[in-house]
Structure formats: C-alpha cells, structure tokens
C-alpha cells in the first residue's frame, strides 16, 4: 500500500466547498533514547509519510487504522501540535480566507485556531480538574472577546451546554470530577463548538467510553453537525463507529494512506487487501469480505524502518516482488474510490 499521491483530492475547480485540505503531510520524530543519540545514530520515526486529505463543508471524513498507523499523529499535525515536518494544511483553500496553518506562526496562527477545533480521546484528562464547567466551556470566548461581553458570553455558554444535553443551571459551577466519562465528553464538545469552528477534529472520541454510552455521544455529534454546520474529521480504530459517522473514509497503515473514498464504496467494495483484512477481522465481519481474509500476520513493521515499496507488503497475501520495489500510488478504481495497491480487488462498477 504505501500510498502516496493525491489522485483522491477533489479538484478545487469542481468543488468550491472544500474547507480543509491537507497536502503531502509528513511527520517525523527523532527516535530512540539517549543511547542511540550518543552512539551517533539518528534514527527517525516515520509517523506520517506524505498523506493528503480533503474535506468538504458538512462532510464527515472518517480516518481509520490500527495503533501506530499515524491517524492520531495526522490529527495533531493538522492542528499544529506539534507542527508537521513538511506539507501544507490549508483552511478554506481557494477562498479569500485561505490559510496554510503549517506556514503560519505566532499570533497569526492563534487567530485562525478558532476555525479548527479538536476533541480528544480521554474525557477526564480533557477537562481541567480545577476549573468549573462554565469556565471550561467559556474559555474560547474569554480568550477572544473583551470583558464587556460578559452577559452575552454567559448566554452563549448556557446555549451550548444545553445543546450537548447538560443543564447549565445545575452543572455550570461544578468541576469535571463530578461528571461521568460521557458527560465529560459532552462538555468537551461544548467547549469545542462554542467558537463556531468550521472543522471539528475528533480523535477517538468514544474509545474511552463504556459501550452503553458511546451511542449517546455519536448521536450527539451528528446533532451538533446539523445544528452548528460542522465539518468533521473523525479518527477511530473502530470500523463500525467510522461506518456510522462517515461520508468518506480514509484507511491508513503505517503512516500512509491505503484507500480513500466514499464510505459506501470502502465498506461495500473494499479494494485494498489491508482494508479487506480490517473488515474481515471485526468481531462481526463485514458482509463484503470473506472472514478468511483476516489472515494477515501479527507483526507490524517498525515505523523507524518501514518496508520499501508498499508498506503493507510484509503482511499482504498478494505481495509480489514488484511491491517491494515500486510504491503504489493512489489511483481511482471507481467513482470517488481510490486505492494505493498494485493488485486491488476490482468490483464490477455499478
């Protein structure tokens, strides 16, 4: 797989409503401990290698993959925490408001930050244990408006809290440890939407929650999308959750994209052997694949020394010599369906 390329990006001429475009994102970290560095070895973790993505207004892009595939690193690189090694992160590409976050710094970056918000995996850790819910949710307003806005700010905080299903009259003065995980995640969502962002990045927002609470939060995110006109980038390792929320899906493996496209196409006509293995490995395998396709090895190669050519070749049942030599580039296999594989499963176009 090892998919580079940008065939899957939507033509800005044809689609004028792309709100976020990530181009050739690369994120590398120095690897190893002091010993390695003392020995003069400069190993590098290739966490994200040449990933491009775009999202249209009102769309939900699901990014799915296993641990170490770079999906969370991608999310953090988009919000510049930390900044990517290279690549562009364009907010509102092609519009007057176009900003390349990766090329912006200091107060200019701070000023565009409200347009792009994020919610995190750990609901407890996401909230400052020493501040009240009102302070936490109103923080964005407090940063960006003058003191005279007080009453207006309070009304806004109340409105957003009600929208996430928390009663401000009872909850606003309390602190995070008095809430359950699901309620903390609601408060995190309220904090993120209070500034009316264009894009909301959700990094595994339901993974830390109990099964019986997940659906509440997923439904809430859908409601918030409608209510506040949000565009979501939804990162998760859970294929069923991504299926539920996404319009478009990107499958990642070892820092690269495998397959990108319309969610129905990916789930109903998966073309990449890794996507197929993922779908076959789910506790209840997707009907579009044979359960036997889950038989890929357990050994995920190290991102310090990723395989040459296609990064999935070491576990791929279809790998041949060519896969080690030539890196597959993302190419179209259907309407809005792109795959980075030399030997994808092809489906009769319907």
């Amino acid at each position: 797989m090892a998919g580079s390329g940008d065939a899957h990006l939507r033509d800005p001429g044809a689609f004028d409503d792309v709100v976020l475009r990530v181009e050739n994102l690369v994120q590398e970290f120095p690897a190893g401990g002091t010993v390695g560095r003392l020995a003069g070895r400069r190993a590098v973790v290739h966490a994200v290698s040449d990933v491009s993505l775009d999202v249209r207004r009102g769309e939900t892009l699901g990014v799915v993959g296993e641990s170490g595939c770079g999906k969370s690193t991608t999310a953090r690189a988009i919000v510049q925490m930390p900044r990517p090694t290279s690549g562009r992160v364009l907010l509102g590409p092609g519009t007057d408001d176009e900003v390349d976050l990766a090329a912006t710094g200091g107060s200019a970056l701070r000023e565009v930050r409200p347009r792009l918000q994020m919610i995190f995996q750990d609901p407890i850790s996401s909230l400052n244990p020493r501040r009240s819910v009102r302070d936490i949710v109103g923080e964005g307003l407090a940063v960006w408006s003058s003191a005279s806005d007080g009453p207006h700010q309070e009304a806004r905080v109340d409105e957003v809290l009600r929208a996430v299903g928390i009663d401000p009259a009872v909850a606003a003065t309390r602190r995070a440890h008095q809430f359950s995980g699901g309620q903390c995640q609601r408060i995190s969502i309220a904090r993120a939407v209070v500034l009316d962002p264009e894009v909301l990045i959700c990094d595994e927002p339901v993974s830390a929650l109990d099964v019986s609470v997940q659906a509440q939060i997923l439904n809430l995110l859908e409601d918030m999308k409608d209510r506040y006109g949000l565009t979501l980038v939804f990162i998760s390792h859970d294929l069923s959750v991504v299926r539920n929320v996404s319009d478009r899906v990107a499958v990642m493996y070892l820092g690269k994209l495998c397959e990108v496209g319309d969610a129905d196409a990916i789930y109903e006509r998966p073309a990449h052997p890794y996507t197929r293995a993922l779908l076959a490995s789910a506790p209840e395998p997707a009907p579009s694949v044979d359960p036997s396709e889950a038989a890929v090895g357990d050994e995920v190669p190290s991102p310090i020394d990723p395989p040459s050519g296609c990064r999935f070749r070491t576990r791929c049942p279809r790998a041949v010599e060519r896969c080690a030599v030539e890196e597959p580039v993302l190419r179209a296999v259907g309407d809005d369906h792109h795959v980075a594989c030399h030997f994808p499963s092809l489906w009769p176009s319907s």
């Binding site: 701070r110 996401s126 501040r131 940063v143």
Partner: peptide, 26 residues
C-alpha cells in the same frame, strides 16, 4: 501533557494564559 492544556492551545490561548489559567491552579 494533559489534553486540557492542548485544548486551550487549540482554542487559541496564549502561553501566559495557559500557564496562569490551566497550569497554575493545578
């Protein structure tokens, strides 16, 4: 390292504000 500090940065809070409002009380 905690997410609430990262969340404050994503909201656009500056270093001074993060130190005083988010870190100091803890």
């Amino acid at each position: 390292e905690r997410e609430f500090v990262q969340a404050a940065r994503v909201l656009g809070a500056g270093h001074g504000r993060i130190i005083v409002r988010e870190l100091l009380p803890n």
